[in-house]
Design a protein around this nucleic acid. Structure first.
Length: 736
DNA sequence: CTAGGGTTAG
């Protein structure tokens, strides 16, 4: 504490205040120097006015000096240190001048200096008054200075100022902000002063401590509610996730004929956004227009956010494009909207526009844009952002941002870079550990993931359900059946985490792959929830690996029941039939798929070259370098053929979609992307591709060979995991 | 010269 708190226990002296010796008030008030004061926009302006005041002899008046000090201390264009310089020149400053300096401190970043100044005021013999305490108490509230606040409360009582409405409310607010709700309540209950303002101060205390029901009881007692009281309650509900109640209260506010203001609408729009209440959101939009607030940046930002979260992204973009002025939040909201709706390419495009317009991105921008990089595999852009963050946010140890970088690097295939960021982090969060463990799991580094898990415990972190999804998927991708079982049981027994669908999914996938169908089935029977399509689907995949036709039929029935449109499952079943040479059944499925009009999600593969993401569909001929790509493809096939590669046609049904008719196996999107990578990057460069579906067996075998023939490391992400192809083999050990 | 709220992005 910078001041001795014993000073505060000095009873306030009763020295009288110096009588004012100023010329008549109205003469001064209209003095040109003082009119100029209010027009000052910088400290330079202000110094000129000060000079003028001195020249005209006004500096001998308390009034002019107090006005000057007030401006310096309170105005956003002022300067508190200048106010102090002027203060020191004042002979016997009066109460107003002392109060103004205290007020100035209460607004600044070191509000406790207000208390130091207050002590100085008392020691100089000037008695604090009803104006002094609101500033002082605000300082204590701002700084969380509970002890000082209590002592100051004592002074208030001694001076019998607790009957002043302003002081009274300030006391309630101070206690409420310092988390001493009981004291706040005591002050409130003891006084007959019960206006909307003091009610609201206490309500806000309850709201911020999460006691919405206490807040509501008080709110219902307020004799006359003003907009601020309504806003406090509405935002309280919104912040505690009770959006419906927030919106209902807003409607009641309308019924009570209390005019909403900008704050009300910001809160309401946020609640609409989070609860998907598009209709009410639209109503607010017209309210904003009717009130001539269409160029209010904050309101329009909130509208954009509401529209994009309610699924009307293009309406949001229309508003965004029409804005004359935007701030960083406008950007961020729009980018976040695209990311949220999985429109990653548009998110990146908007980010590029942002940079072109010289708008400065901030941490929130990157939290929106890094997941988009991660999804698209845009490693170059991700790296650029990493450099940017290191340059601009060096001093800032933003754990979220670092974690987002780990996730981006891992999902873009650069697990080494992810590890580097992780190791360099000063303050790790549970999310950071989870991102790293999940990343290692995706890359098939099962043992590294498990090692990190034990290290995590050593450093005092408690794993959560997400950690275990990572751990179990590590075991799964590494084919570690025994360890998988152990971790699964440890999760419930040692960590008391009840398994969710994802955990069961990992385990059943793991057991199925290992051919432990009985055990997988037994585990499914213990599930307290119904297995979803993904769980049955992974079992179906296991049936394909182990050529279990009958069980495959049984399992597929369950998948079709849950997800009749799941084309992937139909394809899997047909592959199972194809594996058994049951071509009639293969044809039957093909017909059924056509009859049902089920469209297979088209396979697409993207590859980033020179910071541009190129996307390929099967048989794609729209790329500007299409001719060269297909030339390379022919060369690839020729070399594969020479190396004795025999295409595996057992999964040929992958090609059954109408659009795929012309696409033979060799024109799968991953092959196109690899061919493009081969012609557009220097020899020896690692090729990184991202596929939206699972890699087909044929492409997997072909890619292994390509990595050897062309001496390239090829890192491929499919919808489940990573494959590192190198020198003719793959990191997944053909287990995927 | 004073008190209560809201701050849309994550």
């Amino acid at each position: 504490m910078a001041f001795s708190s014993s000073l505060l226990t000095i009873p306030p002296s009763t020295l009288h205040v110096l009588p004012a010796s100023d010329p008549p008030y109205n003469l001064l008030q209209t003095h040109p120097s003082l009119t100029l004061l209010s027009k000052c926009k910088s400290i330079q302006n202000l110094k000129q006015v000060h000079t003028h005041i001195i020249k005209t002899g006004l500096h001998n008046t308390h009034f002019a000096l107090s006005k000057l000090i007030e401006f310096c201390a309170v105005s956003p264009f002022g300067d508190l240190s200048y106010a102090l310089l002027v203060f020191e020149t004042v002979e016997n400053p009066n109460q107003i001048i002392w109060n103004t300096i205290i007020r100035g401190y209460s607004l600044g970043s070191k509000p406790l200096q207000a208390v130091e100044f207050y002590v100085r005021m008392i020691l100089s013999g000037v008695e604090p008054n009803s104006y002094t305490f609101p500033f002082l108490l605000k300082s204590c509230a701002k700084f969380g200075a509970a002890q000082e606040g209590k002592q100051i409360h004592g002074h208030v009582l001694k001076l019998e100022l607790d009957s002043d409405a302003f002081v009274h409310t300030s006391l309630i607010n101070m206690y409420a902000k310092n988390g001493e709700l009981d004291n706040a309540r005591l002050v409130f209950d003891k006084s007959p002063l019960r206006d909307a303002v003091s009610f609201t101060a206490l309500i806000t205390g309850y709201v911020s401590s999460g006691s919405m029901d206490d807040a509501r009881r008080l709110f219902d007692e307020i004799p006359i509610r003003d907009a601020v009281s309504w806003n406090a309650m509405i935002s309280g509900y919104a912040q505690s996730g009770r959006f419906e109640e927030a919106l209902v209260l807003f409607l009641e506010m309308r019924k009570a004929n209390v005019a909403p203001n900008e704050s009300t609408m910001l809160t309401v729009l946020s609640a609409c956004a989070q609860s998907g209440s598009l209709d009410l959101g639209k109503w607010v939009a017209s309210w904003i227009e009717d009130h001539g607030l269409s160029s209010n940046v904050r309101l329009v930002n909130a509208l954009i956010d509401m529209y994009s979260k309610c699924g009307a992204l293009d309406t949001a973009r229309g508003l965004f494009d029409a804005m004359h002025q935007r701030d960083v939040i406008s950007w961020n909201v729009m980018i976040g909207g695209y990311t949220h709706e999985s429109r990653y390419k548009e998110a990146l495009a908007l980010f590029r526009l942002m940079l072109r317009l010289n708008a400065e991105p901030n941490d929130v921008t990157f939290l929106g844009i890094l997941p988009a990089c991660a999804h698209l595999g845009a490693l170059d852009l991700g790296k650029w952002i990493h450099v940017y963050i290191d340059k601009k946010f060096q001093s800032l140890t933003n754990t979220c941002l670092r974690t987002s970088l780990i996730d981006m690097y891992a999902k873009c295939g650069n697990i080494e870079a992810a590890k580097q960021v992780f190791d360099d982090m000063e303050a790790k969060s549970l999310a950071s550990w989870n991102a790293m463990i999940t990343g290692l799991a995706m890359h098939g580094h099962a043992n590294a993931a498990l090692e990190l898990f034990s290290k995590m415990a050593d450093e005092g972190f408690k794993p959560d359900d997400i950690t275990f999804v990572g751990i179990l998927s590590a075991c799964n991708h590494g084919g570690l059946v025994d360890l998988g079982r152990q971790y699964f049981s440890s999760m419930t027994k040692d960590y008391h985490i009840s398994p969710q669908l994802q955990h069961y999914g990992c385990m059943i996938d793991l057991l199925g792959r290992a051919g432990r169908f009985d055990e997988a089935e037994a585990l499914m029977k213990t599930m307290e929830m119904k297995p979803d399509g993904a769980v049955w689907g992974s079992l179906l995949g296991a049936c394909r690996i182990h050529r279990r036709v009958e069980m495959g039929e049984f399992v597929a029935k369950h998948v079709f029941e849950l997800e009749p449109e799941n084309a992937g499952a139909h394809v899997l079943l047909s592959n199972i039939y194809a594996g058994a040479g049951r071509w009639d059944d293969v044809a039957r499925i093909r017909t059924r798929l056509n009859d049902m009009g089920i469209k297979k999600v088209p396979g697409s593969t993207s590859i980033e070259v020179d910071s541009v993401v190129h996307e390929f569909l099967v048989g794609d001929k729209v790329h500007p370098l299409s001719k060269e790509i297909y030339e390379m493809l022919r060369e690839v096939d020729r070399l594969l053929d020479m190396a004795g590669f025999v295409p595996d046609t057992s999964e040929v049904l992958y090609d059954m979609d109408e659009d795929w008719k012309e696409g033979v196996l060799s024109h799968h999107s991953e092959k196109l992307a690899i061919a493009f990578g081969l012609i557009s990057t220097k020899p020896g460069t690692t090729i990184r591709i991202v596929k939206n579906l699972r890699v087909c067996g044929n492409c997997h075998s072909a890619t292994k060979l390509i990595s050897k023939i062309f001496n390239r490391e090829i890192i491929a992400r499919d919808r489940n995991r990573f494959h590192h192809f190198r020198d003719g083999s793959c990191s997944c050990n053909d287990n995927w």
